[in-house]
């Protein structure tokens, strides 16, 4: 029972990290119609900038702003220099151009920081455990991560549904002329939204630093999982991104924890090991396939 609870919490924590990435990606796609493969690179840049700052200053609390700033700045630069030229283009050009960006960033990081993974210390204030239920200690850092994820979700919801900029974001996607008639500089708005997405990716990257190794290629693994999240949730919908992140994060964590175990109680020996490992690593894709059969446009399709 405790194991189940603990895994549920781990699943929730993964879900919230996935949400940070999916929110930015889906926002950028929903508003600007651009598919940005290099979103994972922003996550990696956040993590590397954080790990670098932590190593230099010795404190996580400077690593956090460093990671956020690096991701947001690189994101803004990316929009101004590259993505801006791709708005009116086919998805194929967008895919190719941002694929080129990934190759560049991976090459650049490998060249400047080396290929061996970096490690980041958990901040001492959060290194302990919290007993959330009697007999169930849980790492304080992971709890804090969840708190941040929930706060961001609420903040995004508030921003999009209640603020002027949110209204512009909602309008910007299909009523470009109208927004421009209001005297809003849509180019600036797009840069801002893109940088915001980058910031969220960077946030996810820095936060993940202390619990996973920081290495080249980390961005793409999580990017593809994020695609699964978005496809399941419905592209362009923040609510869909949240629901998708929850479903995929949970299925992945619980699948990895329990599928091999369950298989072992049925089968025996190396076959169960092999099958269990294989099955648990593909479970989220099977979930995606299932969603596609039932609802090809995702759980929360955006009309139009």
């Amino acid at each position: 029972m405790q194991l189940v609870l603990e895994q549920l919490l781990n699943g929730l924590q993964l879900s919230l990290t996935l949400f940070l990435l999916a929110a930015g990606l889906t926002l950028v796609f929903g508003i600007m119609g651009v598919i940005n493969l290099a979103h994972g690179s922003l996550y990696m840049i956040g993590a590397y900038a954080g790990a670098w700052a932590a190593a230099k200053t010795g404190t996580f609390w400077l690593a956090l702003p460093a990671g956020l700033a690096a991701a947001a700045l690189v994101g803004a630069a990316m929009e101004l220099l590259v993505v801006r030229r791709l708005y009116a283009r086919e998805h194929l050009s967008q895919v190719l151009a941002t694929f080129g960006l990934i190759l560049f960033f991976n090459g650049f990081i490998a060249w400047s920081a080396g290929r061996s993974p970096l490690l980041m210390e958990t901040p001492p204030q959060l290194s302990g455990f919290v007993e959330i239920l009697p007999g169930l200690p849980y790492p304080a850092y992971r709890l804090a991560m969840m708190g941040v994820g929930v706060a961001v979700a609420l903040g995004l919801w508030y921003m999009i549904s209640r603020t002027r900029i949110g209204m512009l974001i909602r309008a910007g996607s299909d009523k470009r002329e109208m927004v421009e008639a209001l005297g809003v500089d849509i180019a600036k708005l797009f840069t801002l939204v893109f940088a915001l997405g980058a910031l969220l990716a960077g946030l996810a990257g820095v936060m993940v630093g202390p619990i996973r190794s920081v290495q080249v290629g980390m961005g793409e693994q999580v990017l593809i999982t994020t695609f699964v999240v978005i496809v399941v949730g419905g592209i362009g919908s923040i609510r869909g991104a949240f629901a998708g992140a929850l479903l995929i994060g949970m299925c992945d964590t619980l699948g990895r924890a329990f599928v091999p175990m369950l298989l072992k109680s049925w089968l025996s020996g190396p076959l169960a090991d092999g099958l269990g490992g294989a099955l648990s690593s593909v479970i989220i894709y099977l979930v995606m396939a299932l969603v596609l059969i039932v609802r090809p446009r995702g759980l929360f399709p955006v009309s139009g």
Partner: peptide, 19 residues
Amino acid sequence: EHWQMVFGPFVLLVAVFAP
């Protein structure tokens, strides 16, 4: 060894300027 650092921008240029 880091050839992708050069190849990436090349791909980018092809995508943007020579679709």
